[in-house]
Amino acid sequence: MATHDDSRSPQKKAADDIPIYSAENLQSNMKSIYYSRTFLSIIGGVVAGIWGISGWTGFIVYFLVMAFASLGLALKAKFSAHKYFDSWNRVLFDGFFGGLMSFVLFWTFAYDIVHIF
């Protein structure tokens, strides 16, 4: 999980309502989220395939992996998401389904190579 934390990251104080962001840093942080999720979904797909998980269990595995990713990202942000992102939803749900296609592909690929033939 290469969550990129800049020291100059967007900051926001909940007390007053003027958001002060650095748009570029925010973007770079979001990009790291996207990368880590994609990476994890590919790796998770391969692992699920090698273990021979089939049926709907595979999707449960995917959601577990994504939940794990969210947890890891929150940990990396030291549970103060507002320091790096503009809302908690970014850490928890951004790109939750983006990796599904990659996951399914690599899951199928590994599963077929190991178990079908």
């Binding site: 990009k31 996207y34 990368y35 994609t38 990476f39 979904s41 590919i42 983006g98 990796g99 296609m101 990659s102 399914v104 592909l105 690599f106 199928t108």
Partner: peptide, 20 residues
């Protein structure tokens, strides 16, 4: 076809975001 759509994530990892 599955590859065509599913590999986008992999490409974004190995080629950088331009391709994503």
């Amino acid at each position: 076809f599955l590859n065509l759509f599913g590999l986008r994530g992999l490409f974004s990892l190995i080629l950088g975001d331009e391709n994503a």
